[in-house]
């Protein structure tokens, strides 16, 4: 008699695993990483290696000590480490980068239950942790080593003084010849990554588009200056955060309208911090705050199943 196998659904599977998705994200981050190394020099590469290395190591050790199943193979720690690194300055002291990576992985991710159970994006929280701890060495941005710039302030710091004088030209901003963190300067590299992720179906295009669009429209409303608003779109960590950090599966709403509300909220808070707050950069804080609100947004926009109870 042939053996009949009885099992429950699903019976058809795609080849989409966590590892495959994380690999796609790593590939999408590659242009940004390369651009960062070219613009800021070999120091950027060291920061990336230290962050990724310590992230993977901390998750490995944590799982070992607490006798959980080893999850390092799904590459999520590597992705967190790389995103964190691309948020930092190229000349940040390496021990501070390591501390931030360990904090991000162990406190924000592992202690809350590992991948899927974290309440906020580990890379964003790690970046904020480093920014608060080591404000002088990691705050602001490093100047590119490839070209000599006239002023030694990042574009956001210049715009905090409510002027467009002294800003690099828009093409320079797109190429990345300006001060800032490793991954945030080269707009073209980020857009390449965005295109790849949308093509592979890893992210939906709504979140980054609405995030960036909200920032543009709101800064237009507040400042009534078209040039300034355009510069705001290309300055700071907006493009990088919108594409790579505001699209994290775990910490953003699942539903489509939830994603749109999330993106709008991020844009709103970013603009408020940039224009009315004391920090020149608001993207990290806005993503963190909206992460915390995500469960409620999800509940609010949850689809009722067909024929289900109200």
């Amino acid at each position: 008699m042939n053996k009949l196998v009885v099992s429950s659904s699903p019976h058809i599977r795609t080849d989409s695993t966590t590892r495959r998705i994380m690999l796609d994200v790593l590939i999408a981050l590659l242009p940004t990483a390369v651009a960062g190394t070219v613009i800021f020099g070999i120091k950027a590469l060291w920061v990336m290696l230290v962050c990724v290395g310590f992230s993977v190591l901390s998750e490995f050790l944590f799982n070992l000590i607490t006798k959980h199943t080893q999850t390092v193979g799904d590459l999520s720690a590597a992705v967190t480490g790389l995103i964190l690194a691309l948020n930092l300055r190229a000349d940040a002291p390496l021990w501070q980068c390591a501390v931030g990576a360990v904090f991000a992985i162990i406190v924000v991710k592992c202690l809350f239950g590992g991948l899927g159970c974290n309440f906020a994006n580990p890379a964003v929280t790690g970046r904020i942790f480093i920014m608060i701890c080591f404000a002088t060495t990691v705050g602001g941005g490093m100047m590119p080593t490839v070209v000599d710039l006239a002023s030694s302030a990042t574009p956001l710091e210049i715009m905090k003084g409510d002027t467009v004088n002294g800003l690099p030209s828009l093409p320079d901003m797109m190429l990345g010849l300006r001060g800032g963190a490793i991954g945030e300067v080269c707009a073209i590299a980020i857009l390449l990554g965005f295109a790849y992720l949308v093509y592979r179906g890893v992210i939906h295009f709504e979140t980054p588009l609405i995030f960036i669009g909200t920032v543009f429209v709101l800064s237009l409303i507040i400042s009534s200056d078209l040039t300034l608003s355009l510069y705001h779109v290309f300055s700071g960590g907006l493009l990088f955060g919108a594409v790579f950090m505001a699209t994290d599966y775990v910490t953003t709403p699942i539903t489509r309208s939830g994603k749109m509300i999330f993106a709008f909220g991020c844009g709103l808070i970013t603009v408020l911090i940039r224009f009315f707050g004391t920090y020149p950069e608001g993207v990290s804080f806005s993503i963190l705050l909206m992460n915390i609100l995500s469960p409620y947004i999800e509940k609010w926009t949850a689809k009722k199943p067909l024929g289900g109870k109200k």
Partner: peptide
Amino acid sequence: ATVCGRVACPEN
């Protein structure tokens, strides 16, 4: 309970 990952996590 609504925001913790533990209740929903299949591993736990």
